[in-house]
Each structure stands twice: as C-alpha cells, then as structure tokens.
Design a protein around this nucleic acid. Structure first.
Lengths: 410, 410
DNA sequence: ACTACTTTTATAATATTTTTTAAAAGTAAT
DNA sequence: ATTACTTTTAAAAAATATTATAAAAGTAGT
C-alpha cells in the first residue's frame, strides 16, 4: 500500500526512509486538503521540502490516484503554475451526528463536499443494542446508496452528547453498554475506524475548520440547545482535559442559593439557562394565560419545543423575546467567568438557540460588558454560528482528517 | 557563529541545508537539556536522526564547546555507551522575579544549576524609571560578581505580577511607562533578550519544568499570595489567551450579592479569598481582642503580614487556622468552576500561602469534593508546591530555555 | 515585437543522510 | 575461559535530497 499513513495506527520511531517518505506524502496531502488546489511552489513553501523533491512526490501521488491535475493557475508575474488537488473520490469520510432525538448522517469526499446527507428525526438515543443497530444500518444504507465500499472509507467521525473519552473511544453517558467501548464496537461493525467525540467539541472542530473560528487560535464554542455544552479551541488545538470531561460549562456554580441541578449540585448555570428551562417557562406562562404566538400552538395541539420558541422569537413574539432576555443575564455572567479565565478572541454561539441570532447575541453582549473587565471583553467577539445545525457534522469530518493528517488514526 | 539557533530571531522558511543542520543541533541540545547526560543511542531515538549523523553532530558540538564528554554509562547488556552533557558554562540565563515588595535574581548555568542567587526585600515595585534602573543595576552586579559577560548570557526571564503580554514583551500593570515596552527596554539595557511573563504563568512553567507538573499535560497552578493568580498548562503548553490576560481567576464571580472588588465589579473571588483579606480579617479580630499567637506580635510591634500568619498556622494557632478554613470554602467553590471547565489532572497551590501545606490542601479538598462532580474531582490531585518561593525564578529559566530550544527567541 | 524582468519546471552536479556491514566492548551463563 | 548474546561505535556503500543551473512560459513596459 503506497499511502500507509492514511491507514496505519502510528508512524513514529526510529529513522527510516520509508517512514520519512510517508511523512512527506502526508505533508503534501495535508496542504492540499487544508488549502485546496495548489502549485508545486506553494507546497514547497509550506512543506519545507525542495522543489525537485516535491515535484517527484506529487508525481508519485498522481500515480497513486490520490492527486489530480486541476488546471493552470494565475500568473504572479511569471510562468503560470500547474495546479494539483486531491482526488475527491479517492476516499470518503462518514459523519454521524447524534442528538437525543435525531440521527444525522453524511458522506464527505476528499474535498469536503457532501455526497450524501440524511436526517432521521424519529430517532431516539437509548442505551440499547437496538439503538446502535439502527445506527449501523443507516450507515450501511448511506454507503450502499452512494455505492461506496467500506474499503473506500477512511474513517467515521461520531458526535454524541454527554461525557466522552475521545482518546479511548468511550462514551460514558450514552450507548455505554458495549464491552469494547462504543468506538471500537462500531469500528468492528463498519470495517473502518470510528472517532468519537462529545457534541460540543465536534461543533468546535467544525467551527475551527469551516466556520468563524477558522484561522483563530483561542475560540470558545457554545452549544446552546436543551442543555449547555462548551467546546474549546485553545492555543489552536481542541482542548479535552485529562479524561475528555472538560467543558462542563452548564455545571459551573452561578447561584449559591439556587435550585437543585440534575447533576446533584445546587445553582448550576444549567438550572438557570438552557433551552429546556426556556421552553418550560414559556409553557408554564401560557398555561397561566400569557399572551404569545405560542399560545395558539397549544390550541392547535402543536408541540411547543425549542424550535417553535426560536421561530416565535424570530417572528417578533415579545413574550418569548423577554424570556430569552432574562436567561441571557445568567448566560452572560457565566460567559464572563470564561472570559476572565481564558481570554478568548471569539465566542461562537451554536446549537438550536443560535438560530435566534441577534436576539441572543445582543442581550448577552450587553450583560457581558456589564460584568466583564473591559480590557478583556473589548478584545473578544461574540458571534452566532454560520454553520448552525451542520457544525457538528462538519466537525466529525474535520476530526477524522485531522487525525489522519496528523498521523495518528486510532 | 556555529549555533545560530541559540541567537537568531527565527529559523524558518524554505529548505536550506544550513538551517536543517541548526535544527539538528537544536534537537540534540534540547535532548541534553531536558534529559541530562545522554548517549548517542538515546539521542538517536529521541531525535529520529541516524546514528552516524548524530555521532558526527555531537562531534561538532564538542568542537564548539557546547557539549562535554561526561564519562561512560551503565551497560544495558552490551558495550557501555559514551555519555555527553551540555557544557554548563557555555551560556547562562538570568532569572528575575519581581513581586510588589521584593526583587529576586538568579543566574543559571546550562545544567539548571544556580550559580548566583540574591533577594532584595527592601525593593518596592513602582512605575518609575528609578525602579527599572535598580533592576538593571542589580543584574549588572550579579553578572560582575560571577564575572560573566553579557555575551555569555543567552537571555533573561522576567516574572512580574499583573497583566502581561508575553508575546510582545509588554507589562500593562507595572513598569508600563517605557516607550519601547518593558521587555525591549530592559533588553537594550542589558545587551541580551528579556522574556517577560506574568508571575502566575512563570510559576506554572517552573512547576512544569522542575516541580510536580513535570510530565503532566493539564495542570493548573495557583499563586496564592496577597492576590490570586492562575497559570495554566493545557495540552502540555502554557496557556496565555489572546492578549496574555488569561488566568484572571481572582476576578471570576462567586457571590452576586458580595462586596465591591478593586477591579470595579461585585463579588469577585478575590473579595472573599486572598492573603490580603486573610491578614486583614485576623488583624481586625485581634484589634477586637481575639486570642491568637499573632496578638503577641502586635504587642511586640512586629508587622502582622502573610508570612507571620502562615507561621502562626504552622505553629498550630487555632484562630488563624479557622480563618484560613473559612476562606477555603470560597476558594474550593472557585476551583470547582475550574475543574468543571478544564478537567485538569492536577492543581498545584503555590505562592506564600502554599507554605501552609496541608492546612490549606485539606480544607480545600473537602470543599471541592462537596461541590464538584465526582467523576471529574476524583481524577484530579490537589497538591501544594514543592518549589514554593523558587517556582517563579525557576520558571523564568524554563521560559528562556523553552523559547531557545523551540527556536524562537524574540 | 522586442527587452527586461518574473515565476515555474526540469536536469545535472553536489551534498547530505541513511543503510549496511563489521568491529569493538560488554554481559551472562556454562 | 569460552560461548552466545547484547549494545555501541565506526566506516564504507547506497540512497536520498538539495543546490545550482538552465530552459520554458509568462508579464509588463517601450
């Protein structure tokens, strides 16, 4: 096999010409993946390999079918360069994004293009083998639909809520029943490796690779849906902590005299701010006769869920907006703690509540400015995600490619 | 000059045999610095350079005077290896640690050995050119005492409280009056580069290089003296945030109904927990007739400061211990927030209060266990620093060597 | 269209690095 | 002491990568 670095577990150890060549191939493939079509000269600059050698390596890659010629680039004052790009069909990546009540699947080619996308909304995340079986089947359907054999899949990325130990491929909160661990179990079913991570962290990877966090070094990504998740890019790298439990932002102490949280502690941020709380508050108020667009939902027998609340907010429903504003004070206070500890350059609001856009950004910004040290808050941008519901799925792709191109596929 | 990597600003860019050789020298010097005396075979393994080449490079380094032969090592079942070590006298590093009321200086050789150490306790940190002039003079005295010329100094590391932008060598809180910025100004005075950083961060570097954080990847180091500082090692690297303002742990919100903090906000941790508060509380109580070892201090006209309080605690003074215990609840709560956000493997208590050892570790541990999620707290060790007051000074050495050996000396 | 300049690409000559091989030096067991 | 094994070191041979050079391809101004 010519490109073992795409498959082998590790590529380290003593000096070895073959391994060095693998590393050179890897550098070139990485450049083409991260920067798109490129000339030999560009690769020379980024790889620090000499021009004759890069030319010969690219020639090899053309022969292997990994790389394609992609025309001639613009002149920058001299001869126009030949451009090369990755062969999009050389390998594929499977993306799996699971939430409590949905299963999203995607197939990506080597140019990050979606070649398959499906969302199953009737899915329910349960700790049963039946549930994993559904996932395995749906992935098989995806591959069959596109006529892609498992050998053509580099790896799958898997995004799941709860405590996840990405390093060992273990999910502690959900689908935790398998003996092998979820990652290894699914890998054995699929015939290709599966990289697990927590949903907030895959979202952060997605934002880093394709969203507003691109080219930024210190970014915090909030997953505001029914709960509160936090994925952190620190010093340019995803931060997971010792056991992969970092980012439990929903369970930091905000109100010492507050309510009991599901985690067993008192006054966690999540008892004051979360999509779940917001929906519950609005439902309760409507039951007590509060006027709102959402009151008609109830009459019509429609479910009042987070999606409906966000829609009402966007439609200008004053009551829903007020309720969101109230929540934003607590969220702002919590974010100030993050700001003071981590001095990030950007905080990205993602998750279902991110669809509310400025209705969440504006009040949170206001509260943060009230509570934060100016020197720190003035250097930070608070924005809502562009990728929105696709962030996690894009992040699974990014996590796979990062592992492959950094040479460690476990 | 043979070893330009020790001096040059950067060493990047296109392929170049000379630069590559510098990089090879750097790898070998780094191995010898971080692991002490080593054989050719050991260097081969860590550097991934072939044995004949390593042998020839080490030979070069012997010729340059950077490396010395240091005898013959133990056999591991075959021929005994020749060992090599850095020449301790090849270059020196100046360490400068400033607190509000002290100036500590050190000179380190290439084996991390202290060849000079002096502490000026009558020093006061003021924002005047007179103050920087004192520092410059004291450093000159240090070098003269040891008869070391500025050319023999690789760089100085400088630890200072307050907001520091290490990347640009700027101190915002103290000694901020120079036009060039403190780092560049001192550099121009000394004739060698000066690397600035915040005191909590240099302490963290010291712990990472020489203390309990050695070989750990995710460690939080608390500087508990009159204020509260936090230095973080995340993913194995020092974390500074976008502008070098990360770690403002003293200003996270703990009590929404609390007191006004010096930073202008309400209820910061520092209004509840700090050496200053502890001393003040004890002083006030003694004025009101509280029995304590420290009451006699007052009668004898001695100053009741943090050092005296810690001494009383270690001597078993129940009142002082009680006061410390009270503070530990707030500190514990604050640390739980850190724990949930960052899932560290270790938290090291440093600073003047660290001298209290178990008297601070035990109560804080108790409160953390009360407020933290078990899964996260049970994986974490809370310990007090071994390096104590030397941590920052050792950290300045570590920061210089890290910059030099990672090839960027700014 | 010509000149002077640029960048890209290809090739040959040179330099560097690794692999291979073997000798030197040592351990451990008989 | 001898044997069989190990690791370390050294030196020659082979492989690999870089530098230098030149040709090819293009721009821009006259």
């Amino acid at each position: 096999m010519e490109l073992e670095f795409l498959y082998e577990k590790t590529l380290q150890g003593a000096v070895n010409a073959k391994k060095r060549k693998q590393e050179q191939y890897r550098k070139i493939v990485a450049h083409l993946y991260y920067h798109g079509a490129a000339s030999i000269a560009e690769i020379v600059k980024s790889s620090k390999i000499s021009q004759p050698l890069v030319a010969s390596l690219v020639d090899d890659l053309l022969g292997f079918g990994v790389v394609l010629e992609s025309g001639i680039g613009e002149s920058v004052g001299g001869r126009r360069p030949n451009l090369f790009c990755l062969n999009p069909e050389y390998q594929y990546v499977v993306g799996i994004d699971i939430t409590l009540h949905s299963l999203s699947l995607a197939l990506f080619d080597m140019n990050n293009q979606l070649v398959y996308r499906e969302e199953y909304k009737e899915f329910d995340l349960e700790n049963t083998s039946n549930c994993t079986q559904i996932i395995v089947e749906k992935v098989k359907i995806a591959l069959e639909t596109r006529n892609i054999k498992p050998e053509k899949v580099l790896a799958a990325g898997f995004s799941i809520p709860g405590l996840v130990d990405a390093e060992h491929g273990l999910s502690h909160t959900h689908l935790s029943f398998t003996e092998l661990g979820l990652g290894a179990y699914l890998g054995s079913q699929f015939g290709f490796p599966v990289l697990l991570d927590n949903d907030a962290r895959t979202m952060a990877l997605g934002e880093k690779a394709f969203g507003k966090a691109k080219d930024k070094k210190n970014v915090l990504c909030l997953n505001l849906s029914n709960g509160i998740g936090l994925g952190m890019i620190l010093n340019g790298e995803l931060y997971s902590g010792k056991n992969g439990f970092a980012g439990e932002f929903g369970h930091i102490l905000i109100d010492p005299d507050g309510k009991l949280c599901s985690c067993g502690k008192i006054g966690c941020l999540e008892t004051l701010t979360s999509g779940k709380i917001l929906v519950q508050k609005i439902k309760d108020a409507i039951d007590e006769g509060q006027a709102s667009f959402l009151a008609s939902y109830k009459k019509e027998g429609k479910r009042i869920d987070l999606r409906a609340v966000v829609a009402a907010i966007l439609a200008g429903d004053q009551f829903a907006i007020d309720q969101l504003n109230q929540m934003c004070e607590y969220l702002g206070k919590g974010l100030v703690t993050l700001l003071h500890l981590l001095n990030p350059e950007m905080i990205i609001i993602g998750g279902k509540l991110a669809h509310a856009g400025k209705f969440i950004i504006n009040p949170v910004t206001m509260w943060m400015n009230k509570y934060a040290m100016d020197r720190i808050s003035s250097e930070m941008e608070l924005v809502s995600s562009d990728l929105l519901d696709d962030a996690a799925l894009m992040g699974t792709m990014a996590s796979v490619m990062k592992k492959v191109l950094s040479n460690r596929l476990e």
